[in-house]
């Protein structure tokens, strides 16, 4: 059974069909790439999986459970974590606290336990901090635990988002353009981190524009254009797929595509 399965997913915005009967399946342990030209509907697909949007038609099935209509936070608890295309950190809070946000859904102590400072609450709090530090170490931000998240560099902010997502202890990690705004060294470090995430047994689904990253990191790709799936396969197959090349290079001046291939 696939870990994540999309069945003929449809999303309309007013008269515009942003996602049109997209289906694909992600197997457990994969590093799966979702690519396509700008505005193809990739992020919309992600938002449909994570519950930020509700599909008009079709199904999202994760780990045997239909996710349609569940609240985003519920979906996180079930084991789907995400990062955002436009970085969305809790700016005024420290890196550590950002990761603690991810720990939140695996913790139990409520407001009354906090006021009474029960032994359980104290222990849980300490364990959460340990876990958060471990995740910061994992992405290489261990020394920045106390730093305000908005004073981190752009690349490190992306890594912090990944650490926050990992702290939710996901089965599936969804990365929306993780290399956006990163330089070459940072991208290389990211590829290495993604490999280590896979080694932890976490499945990765990512959107990316940086084709070198996609080709290096991903084991399987789905390509969408105008909200429709146009190809699916191994990276080397996609590279030579006629439809894909057309979609990227097209007849017009889509610079990005030229730069990529």
């Amino acid at each position: 059974m696939s870990l994540l399965k999309l069945e003929k997913l449809v999303k309309d915005f007013g008269g515009l069909r942003a996602v049109d009967e997209v289906s694909f399946a992600v197997e457990a342990g994969d590093i799966f790439g979702l690519i396509g030209p700008n505005g193809a509907g990739k992020t919309t697909v992600f938002n449909l999986i994570t519950g930020n949007y509700v599909p008009n038609k079709g199904k999202v099935i994760f780990d045997g459970q239909v996710l349609n209509g569940l609240a985003p936070n519920k979906i996180v608890t079930l084991g789907v974590a995400r990062t955002f295309q436009t970085i969305r950190l809790f700016k005024a809070l420290s890196a550590l606290e950002n990761v603690l946000a991810g720990c939140h859904c695996r913790m139990k102590s409520g407001s009354i336990a906090a006021m009474l400072k029960t032994p359980f609450q104290k222990r849980e709090e300490k364990e959460a901090i340990q876990l958060a530090l471990a995740e910061l170490d994992f992405v290489g931000l261990g020394d920045d635990a106390d730093t305000r998240s908005d004073s981190l560099s752009y690349g490190n902010q992306r890594l912090l988002e990944i650490a926050r997502a990992l702290a939710t202890q996901p089965k599936l990690l969804i990365l929306d353009e993780p290399a956006g705004g990163m330089n070459e060294q940072e991208t290389d470090a990211l590829i290495e981190i993604i490999a280590r995430i896979k080694a932890r047994g976490i499945t990765v689904l990512l959107i990316e524009h940086d084709m070198s990253l996609v080709m290096q990191a991903c084991e399987k790709l789905v390509v969408i254009e105008y909200g429709r799936k146009i190809a699916e396969g191994l990276p080397e197959e996609i590279k030579v797929n006629k439809k894909v090349i057309e979609a990227y290079l097209g007849t017009d001046d889509e610079e990005e595509g030229e730069a990529c291939f």
């Binding site: 994570t50 930020n52 609240a71 985003p72 936070n73 519920k74 996180v76 608890t77 974590a81 995400r82 955002f84 969305r88 950190l89 809790f90 946000a101 991810g102 939140h104 859904c105 926050r164 997502a165 939710t168």
Partner: peptide, 9 residues
Amino acid sequence: VAAEGSGIN
């Protein structure tokens, strides 16, 4: 939005 996306109700 980020809070929901991090699993907070």
